[in-house]
């Protein structure tokens, strides 16, 4: 569970015991998820972990085999129509219509809400995803990043309180990905809740207030990036830049756990170690080095600790 707060009025999503089976396959396997309002939750996991199935259940687009879920306080099975009005969705692999412009797309989707957008509101939506300069270009001429931004704009047309973004940056180049992160952060600043599925660990680390790690249909760990690091990593690395191989043997002789990394030496310390003692050893060794860098573990290390594998290109690698 990603939230300790269980007051329904503060929760955007409250799912309990969700199960989704396809024959013998349990795509979602007894999932509990509590998401407070106003945060970005990253559902992090490799391809096939059940992330998309989970969000599709929460969006009301797919029916679970068992379990229950409330979105913005409403049961997704009983209040489907009401939820539709306050939830925005960017599906995985969304592609806009080639022969329509972003402005026409937005006007069309507003029409599906029975709304007619004024000039100002249209300009505001276009500006919120930085597409104002590309508003009248046919969608087939947009870049991959611009198409995703348009998808987010369409998810925002109904002015939703909760936005689901399913793998929004998959396949984008790093620059386009960072630009999209900025747009997603803006959603949080506007007070919306964002549920983001991703297999990019750095994306979850950069954006999310809460991360739920999902593997084989189950959430195996949840919490803020900082709390996950505290809970699942017990080392901190100290890198001595340019100390050379002689420095490595000196440090090992002094009882420190250290490894060589090119011209650098990396000293591993346990979370329980007194850092001043370690620094004292380094000082007494009288080594010459250009810099000292303290390296905190990353979410990638957390993932490795919990799952025993890394994610590369969306796939689990031992």
């Amino acid at each position: 569970m990603s939230a300790t707060v269980e007051d329904a009025s503060t929760l955007a999503i409250e799912a309990r015991g969700l199960v989704k089976t396809y024959g013998d396959l349990r795509a979602v396997d007894g999932l509990d998820l509590l998401v407070p309002k106003g945060i970005i939750l990253a559902l992090l996991g490799p391809n096939g972990a059940g992330k998309t199935t989970t969000v599709e259940i929460l969006e009301g687009l797919r029916q679970s085999t068992s379990g229950s879920a409330k979105v913005l306080g409403q049961d997704i099975t009983r209040s489907y129509e009401e939820i539709r009005q306050v939830v925005g969705i960017l599906p995985q692999d969304f592609e806009p219509f080639d022969r329509l412009t972003p402005r026409e797309h937005i006007r069309y989707f507003a029409g599906l809400f029975g709304r007619s957008l004024g000039k100002e509101e249209m300009a505001q939506i276009l500006a919120s995803v930085s597409l104002q300069d590309r508003a009248d270009v046919h969608a087939r001429k947009l870049s991959g990043g611009e198409k995703r931004k348009l998808g987010i704009a369409l998810a925002l047309v109904g002015n939703p309180q909760l936005v689901f973004l399913d793998e929004p940056t998959t396949g984008l180049d790093p620059a386009a990905r960072r630009e999209l992160w900025r747009v997603i952060e803006e959603l949080r600043r506007e007070g919306r809740t964002v549920v983001l599925t991703t297999h990019y660990i750095e994306e979850a680390e950069a954006l999310a207030d809460e991360v739920s790690i999902m593997v084989r249909g189950k959430i195996v760990a949840s919490g803020s990036p900082a709390s996950l690091l505290d809970e699942y990593t017990d080392t901190k690395d100290i890198r001595l830049v340019g100390v050379g191989s002689e420095g490595l043997s000196t440090l090992i002789e002094r009882g420190l756990t250290a490894t060589s990394d090119g011209e650098d030496v990396v000293i591993q310390t346990a979370a329980t170690d007194d850092l001043s003692t370690v620094l004292g050893h380094i000082s007494q060794a009288g080594l010459a080095f250009r810099d000292v860098i303290t390296e905190r573990p990353s979410l990638e290390d957390v993932f490795l600790t919990i799952v025993g594998a890394r994610i590369e290109e969306g796939e689990l690698k031992p």
């Binding site: 599709e56 969006e59 009301g60 687009l61 129509e81 539709r84 009005q85 939830v87 925005g88 969705i89 960017l90 599906p91 995985q92 692999d93 969304f94 592609e95 806009p96 219509f97 989707f109 599906l112 809400f113 029975g114 998808g151 369409l154 998810a155 109904g158």
Partner: peptide
């Protein structure tokens, strides 16, 4: 195929 049907059906229609 283009995934827009999901977006469409996620609308109140």
């Amino acid at each position: 195929e283009r995934g827009s049907i999901l977006l469409l059906l996620s609308m109140p229609i």
